[in-house]
Design a protein around this nucleic acid. Structure first.
Lengths: 296, 296
DNA sequence: CTAATAGTGTCTCTTAGACAATATAAT
DNA sequence: ATTATATTGTCTAAGAGACACTATTAG
């Protein structure tokens, strides 16, 4: 049972004498796309407020990208996983603790950070509006919630001998008060008999630091995809909500209107009725629901 | 336009004087789950051979995990992306160049490698059987294709106050000749109003190095998921194939039989007819298809 | 002819899309 | 009563599951 390697060492002996090589190592950071949904103001007392999708950004106080806006993030420590680092970062920035958290993608272009070799393991977090207390973090941070929109603006397809290249350009726009950030992100899918790859590229970018436009694009696409076939959207809802509110959240995520009857049939198993109703709405009250504990 | 930070430095000045901190950095490796599909031998001249799903493993020649089997992989260099490292590794191990390649997940438990702090950015590759020339790599490598099976063996659900914990245990079995590796991987989904997380854990493990049982489980689940709604399976097919072969590949991936008529309706848009047919089959010849260049 | 697979037709049941009808609190 | 939303019903078209029937080759 005492296996020895070609130098005659047992595993214990090998590990005791092991010294890490002195080849270069990257720094590894986590960057987080933290989503929430908020109500817009509505002055007609009878009308329901609309929903908007927001993410948290932090204005950079030092080089590089001084003054520009970046995703919250930080370096991973040798005593934690990337996920724990993300959770720590989330807590530091928002004071929120237990949320939906999902790893997205690891970005590793060697020159993505001008300082040094930094990989970013990105995460997506969903927090419900009732947990977003203040206007986020301490003011020193210049943290702010930006309204997000992400729209297809160009689509093209090139046919090759044995496959195709499909290119889609999306307009990413982030708005917080007077601050308006804009980027165009391209998603290029190459698919031939012998290869298949998806690449993101930043075509234009105003005010977003690093390659964060790519990371945000990646997050929205994941969120849009998962909304269709999971209960992920329910993690953006408070404890109690109406079905119309839930539908609004779906609509703001996929950026498309849904038919009420079909929507309700689709999500009926994801929610549970309660005996509570909305009050003082200026119209017929709506039953309140909560996330289902059964199924899925 | 010349922004200066709190020390009065411009970005160029800042980057020139920048020295990476001396905090600890992880090594980052890529590990690859390389899938292919092969025919089993069939002696009845009339019967079609069955398909089996295989992945490439390499027997370790040094500590740690001496003699055990590991995924092909290697460290990422500071001049390349993780994806390029994966491609390089793939080329070194199989001599195959352009294939379907997809990032899976970054594993970062600090103690996942007993030598030092190593994160693994894992990739899945699909190569078609016609590209698998020899029995893989040089013999010195002890590389081998293992037949893979991954089956749900236990499922349980615990209801909580505000959610549930769903636990699934899968039996992972890898066979190559007389070598038989077995592992049980648990997938635990915790979902409450305030949190949501998916964790993998290795319950038992015989002969697989590191946390590679987790990585393999992650890859199969991704493959199974994507088979349902993309044309991913077509990257496992040679240039020309019959619809029955394609159905066999679907079946071996999802480990379930499909109905012929329904299957053909489902994939009709993913393939294109050719004017070629199988020959000498001992029964009615079958039309050969190729991957569609249109659509999707 | 026989064995084995190839390929197509059709019935049913379920689901998605579209639209309509009815219900109800606050002012 | 009016307004705006809540909730349910139904028609249709499309799709998935299940099964059966016909076609075609090597030997």
């Amino acid at each position: 049972m005492e296996l020895r390697d070609r130098n005659g060492l047992t595993e214990r002996e090998f590990l005791e004498q092991y010294r890490a090589g002195d080849y270069e190592r990257p720094s590894v950071a986590t960057d987080m796309v933290i989503f929430t949904v908020s109500d817009t103001v509505e002055d007609n007392y009878r009308k329901l407020p609309e929903k908007e999708l927001r993410i948290l950004l932090i204005q950079r106080g030092g080089h590089p990208y001084l003054g520009q806006w970046a995703l919250p993030g930080g370096f991973v420590r040798s005593t934690e996983t990337t996920e724990q680092a993300a959770q720590r970062e989330l807590w530091e920035e928002t004071g929120v603790d237990h949320v939906y958290l999902e790893q997205l993608y690891t970005f590793s272009e060697p020159d993505r950070d001008p300082r040094t070799w930094v990989m970013s393991c990105s995460y997506m977090a969903l927090i419900d509006s009732s947990q977003v207390q203040v206007e986020a973090g301490d003011d020193a941070d210049h943290a702010a919630w930006f309204q997000l929109s992400y729209r297809l603006v160009r689509e093209s397809m090139e046919l090759l001998e044995d496959g195709y290249i499909k290119t889609r350009q999306y307009d990413l726009s982030l708005i917080h008060g007077d601050v308006c950030l804009n980027a165009v992100v391209e998603r290029k899918i190459t698919s031939t008999d012998t290869a298949h790859a998806t690449e993101y590229a930043i075509i234009s970018n105003e005010g977003l630091a690093f390659d964060h436009a790519k990371i945000i694009a990646c997050a929205i696409e994941r969120l849009r995809g998962k909304v269709e076939y999971t209960d992920i959207a329910l993690h953006l809802m408070p404890k109690l909500f109406t079905l119309t509110e839930l539908q609004q959240v779906y609509e703001v995520i996929i950026d498309r209107d849904l038919l009420k009857a079909a929507f309700r049939r689709k999500i009926v198993d994801l929610v549970e009725e309660t005996d509570h109703y909305t009050e003082n709405a200026g119209h017929r009250p709506s039953r309140l629901y909560r996330r289902s504990r059964e199924r899925i």
